[in-house]
């Protein structure tokens, strides 16, 4: 619990003694590029495959001839938009981006780079962490959209190539009884997850004490804590927003 209090104080400290807007603009841009480079390929790969596998498995489970085949792609769509793209990808994002944020900050801490910033009169938490959080909140929803599209494309490719359903069936399934609020639900989730992952990972990294071993520990803790908080937030948001 004291950890949570420290985390809240840490979040507050990001907004005092800030640098100029131009400085943050540059830093945020750099972080965005970093996040994009580090995760885009992985996201495309994972989501395409999960989309494909979901299609095959759904088809495998629908043995009744009474159910029209376009239901398969409808199921794939629902899975993708509600859970796969925002939540499962968040777990991957925590492993990839969260761990690198924690590791980077932890290394900066133990090699006194953070002290060096402080001596120059810079609010190191705000200078280092705020751009990471902003960049994350900007980039992650885009990555989620990318992942969603890739999953649907993956499903389409497998579904049509393997002859599970025709292209027309697949597309009509995607459109069948589509509820656009699900998209805004997915995006809301991705904003929340992006914030949680970036802030928790930065928090863990920023307060590393000791040496290289502790940086490793901080990195692992960052991922574990992020993952748990994603799952909790997922449950809470589903309760709040899907009524």
């Amino acid at each position: 619990m004291s950890g949570f209090g420290k985390y809240m104080i840490f979040l507050g400290s990001l907004f005092v003694r800030r640098e100029s807007f131009a400085t943050y603009y540059k830093l945020v841009l750099e972080e965005c590029i970093q996040i994009g480079i580090n995760s885009a390929l992985l996201f495309i790969l994972v989501s395409t495959f999960i989309g494909a596998v979901t299609t095959v498995q759904t088809a495998f489970n629908m043995v009744s001839p009474l159910i029209p085949r376009f239901v398969i792609s409808q199921v794939v769509r629902e899975m993708t938009v509600l859970e796969l793209a925002p939540t499962i990808m968040a777990l991957i994002y925590a492993g990839k981006i969260g761990s690198s944020m924690a590791g980077g900050l932890g290394t900066m801490r133990i090699t006194e780079q953070i002290d060096a910033l402080e001596v120059m009169g810079i609010n190191s938490s705000s200078y280092l962490v705020l751009p990471k959080i902003i960049a994350s909140v900007l980039m992650y929803p885009l990555l989620v959209i990318l992942a969603g599209v890739c999953a649907l494309v993956g499903g389409y490719l497998v579904g049509t190539v393997a002859g599970i359903l025709t292209p027309t069936e697949y597309v009509s399934g995607l459109r069948f009884s589509f509820n656009p609020t699900e998209i805004s639900f997915a995006l809301t989730k991705s904003f929340v997850f992006a914030f949680l992952i970036a802030s928790i990972s930065s928090f863990k990294g920023y307060f590393t004490k000791g040496g290289a071993l502790e940086v490793g520990i901080a990195t692992t803790e960052a991922v574990t804590t992020s993952v748990i908080s994603i799952l909790l937030a997922d449950y809470l948001l589903a309760n709040l927003l899907l009524r």
């Binding site: 900066m108 090699t111 006194e112 780079q113 002290d115 060096a116 001596v119 120059m120 009169g121």
Partner: peptide, 14 residues
């Protein structure tokens, strides 16, 4: 702080 320069143990270069 503006008038301070500091060399850290490991250099602490970014």
């Amino acid at each position: 702080r503006r008038e301070i320069g500091m060399l850290f143990q490991g250099g602490a270069l970014f």
